[in-house]
Each structure stands twice: as structure tokens, then as C-alpha cells.
Design a protein around this nucleic acid. Structure first.
Lengths: 187, 187
DNA sequence: GGGTACGTACCGAACGTTTGTTATGTACCC
DNA sequence: GGGTACATAACAAACGTTCGGTACGTACCC
């Protein structure tokens, strides 16, 4: 069932997420859907949870080292570098319209992204502790900036994949991270 | 009429943009709407054009100086620092779901953001020319990074306005711009 | 261990509403 | 009086939701 929801979402977005579309996708009746979801909103909530779960359980690249390299790995995991990652991001970006229109869903998204920043935070803190970032850095600001940069890059890459191939996204991320580190002047 | 479309969009997003919602909003009939819009898709396209127009004609802060300050001003104009700007961004972010679901609209968004980056480009080029940015900078990458950063910050600020008040957004942008400039070591 | 009771899983059809679209009518303007 | 600017009404389709009915497992009783 979740598979069908995901396929509908990836193909038609949240605007095309209907009980019948999901039912047809899985060759079932609308009765099945309503049996598990008391309302349409519950379906939408499940779709968001589904995106959450797929995001959480997707294979992550392991961080080569704590600090900046770990942050880099975590952000690379978010970018639409592969078709699967692009589909995932397409769902997330698409969810923003419906989430912003509903206070409950908006609050859940707020918490979601808050906790994502929370998971990014240790990497930034470690980077500061290891001297990769200036000690004067505001950790929360750096975290938020990195999260914002990644999400914005996701959007631009989704709309213009030709101009933002995987290697350019990676290069841009590396430049961004490099710009965070204090410049070392050649002697 | 455009005013009514805008109000519906700001309140209910693209998922709640219907002919009748707009008609009710302006105390008119659906016949009026269909008189001007041959189809629903035309309505959506108009909504996007409307967002475009409002984006283009909104009062912009004038750049205090060419180069980096001009880039800063242009990006500040995008961030949801005021309720009006937040409403505008809410519409833009909401448009991404419907845009990603329709190839025509997706192409138009792609061009839109491409031309926005095009308008940002001279400022970055000027910054390089003036020595505010390293001569080794890839202008297009810097432009895209700045655009991505701003758009990502928009998303996070929309979902969590309490954690991203105007002054923090501004501070984060300033930090981002500062990180682009080569560090100057105190003698 | 056969019968009964009951909860869960699901189908299929129908409900009433909302949707986009179309058709017809009317007032007004040049 | 022909064209523009709407209103009004109706349309079929799609929508979320409700509901009666079937199948099946599981527990309990005697």
C-alpha cells in the first residue's frame, strides 16, 4: 500500500494524491483505503510519514571522519544526486504546499526540519572542536545555513537537472563547506 | 480579480486554488472566471504570472554599492522578512508541487529561476571585478549557491518563523556573504 | 470438537459534495 | 445590432466518505 502511495506521489505530487489514484495504483478498492485511513488528511499524514521513513532508512554513506567530512556526507545524502534521491526530494518539495496550508502538518514539518538540523548539529560542533571551523562560529547558525543551502540546492536541481548534474551539486557543496573554513594563506 | 486569486493562494495554497474559491472571494460567479480563463491550467498559469508580477513590481531596496552589497540587497529582497514577503514566498514555495507535476509549468519555473540567477549574476561578476570575491571564483557557481542559500532559508523560515526572525535571517545572509570573501589575516 | 460469537480485512456500491467545463441568457457599450 | 462582459444554470466527472455485506481467523463455550 505504501508503495502505491509513493508511486502516486512521485508521479503526480500531493495535488494528485487521491484515494482513487492510490486504489487504482494497487488494484484495490477505495474501501481498502478508507479502512486504513479514517480521512484524507490521514492519508496525507501517512504520505509524510512514509517520506520520513524512506528518508530515515535509505542507505547512507558513512562519514569518513567526524566534523566537516561527516557534515558533507550528511548533506550529500540529501541532494538529488541519483534518480531515487530526486524522487524523494520531489515528494518533500511537493509536500510543502499542503503542509503550509494546514497548521497541523506545518507544525509537523517544522519539527521534522528542526530535528534534522538537530542531527546535523553534532557534526558542526565536532568541526568547531576539531578546529575545522573558527571557534567564533555560532553552531546553530552554521547548521541552519548548511541546511538551507542544501534545501535550496535541491529545489534548483529539481527544476533544472540539466544545469545541476550530480558533480556540480557536489562541487557546489564542497565550495560551500570550504568557504566556511577560515582561509589559510600560503606562506 | 488578481487580488482574489492572491488571497486564495496565500490562504489555501495551490491545493486550494479552485475556480469557485476565487469566485466566492470576489463575490462573483464562476462564469466570470471561465470568461477570462479557458481552463484551470490557465488559472494556475495566471497565478504564477501574478506571483511573477508581484515579485517584479514590489518595492526593492536600492543597492548601496555595486558588487557584494548589491547582491546582499537582492537576496534580502527575497527573504521573508516582512509579512508581505512571507506571503509571497508562501505562494512560490506552494507552487513547486503543482509545477513539478506538470512539464509545462516545470519548464516555466526552470526558466524563471534561471533568469533570476541571471539577474544576480552581474552583482557577483562586479564583486569579482572589484576584488570582493577571489578572482578564482566560478561566477555561475557563486550565483547558484547564493540563490540556493536564499531559497533554502526561505523554506526554513516559512516553517519555523519563530526560530528564524528577520534579524537572524539577515545575520545568516551576512555570514554567508562574508564566508565568500577571502579571509583577511590581521597583520 | 462442533457451534457460536466476535473482531479484522476487505469489497463494491452508493452517498452527497465539489470539481472543471459548457451552454444559454442578459445587459451594456460602441 | 454585433461584440464584450458577465450571470445563471446545468453538466459529467471526480472527489471524500459512508455503509451493507462477505470472507476469514480466533476465541470461547459446552
Amino acid at each position: 500500500m505504501s508503495e502505491a502511495v509513493w508511486r502516486v506521489l512521485a508521479a503526480r505530487g500531493f495535488g494528485g494524491l487521491t484515494l482513487r489514484a492510490v486504489a487504482t495504483e494497487m488494484d484495490a478498492s477505495t474501501g481498502l483505503l478508507t479502512h486504513y485511513f479514517p480521512s484524507k488528511k490521514a492519508l496525507i499524514a501517512h504520505a509524510l510519514d512514509l517520506a520520513d521513513e524512506r528518508t530515515a532508512t535509505r542507505p547512507l554513506r558513512d562519514a569518513p571522519a567526524p566534523g566537516l567530512p561527516a557534515l558533507r556526507a550528511a548533506l550529500l545524502d540529501v541532494l538529488p544526486l541519483t534518480p531515487d534521491a530526486a524522487a524523494m526530494n520531489r515528494v518533500w518539495v511537493g509536500s510543502w504546499d499542503v503542509a503550509l496550508a494546514d497548521p497541523d502538518l506545518a507544525a509537523r514539518q517544522r519539527d521534522r526540519y528542526g530535528s534534522w538540523r538537530g542531527r546535523l548539529r553534532p557534526h558542526v560542533a565536532a568541526a568547531v572542536a576539531r578546529g575545522e571551523l573558527p571557534a567564533s562560529s555560532d553552531v546553530d547558525d552554521v547548521v541552519a545555513s548548511a541546511a538551507a543551502f542544501a534545501h535550496g540546492l535541491v529545489v534548483h536541481a529539481l527544476f533544472d537537472p540539466a544545469r545541476f548534474p550530480a558533480d556540480r551539486q557536489t562541487a557546489m557543496l564542497d565550495d560551500f563547506l570550504a568557504s566556511l573554513t577560515p582561509a589559510v594563506r600560503p606562506e
